[in-house]
């Protein structure tokens, strides 16, 4: 059974979004996603300063088995990529909602409100319907 923290919001493509105090958001992949991928061996995160559109592929997570794109849950400017993951991609498996965050982003004006993010309960329903 995957963990779905109540204080985060989610996408149908299994990213999570955390609102930070400075108005930026932190983004990662969910416990369900890391488990489905298996042991991660390569993570590529975007560089600070890059502008992304909603649903644009902006990071790559690769397990032994397969490569998978990570999509921007909302439009904005990347403020940081997690620098630890180049050397230690397995951190995403071990702590997907904490040390395994992928990127931070400053939302474009109105982007947070416009993004169709799921609540924890809604995301849990999605997982249940996928048979997790």
């Amino acid at each position: 059974m995957s963990k779905v923290p109540a204080d985060l919001r989610y996408t149908k493509s299994h990213e999570w979004v955390r609102s930070l105090a400075d108005g930026t958001v932190e983004i990662g992949i969910t416990d369900h996603a890391q488990h489905a991928l298996g042991d991660l061996v390569f993570v590529e995160v975007p560089e600070a300063g890059r502008s992304v559109k909603a649903d644009e592929p902006c990071a790559v997570v690769e397990s032994v088995k397969a490569a998978s794109d990570v999509y921007a849950p909302l439009a904005g400017e990347i403020t940081a990529g997690n620098p630890q993951l180049a050397a230690e991609p397995e951190v995403v498996n071990g702590d997907p909602y904490g040390a395994g965050w992928l990127m931070r982003l400053r939302p474009a004006p109105g982007a947070l409100a416009a993004a169709a993010l799921l609540s924890a309960a809604q995301y849990q329903q999605l997982l249940d319907s996928e048979g997790d």
Partner: peptide, 9 residues
């Protein structure tokens, strides 16, 4: 079976 717990393990 493709894996039991960890493929790398």
């Amino acid at each position: 079976p493709v894996q039991y717990s960890s493929q790398i393990g």
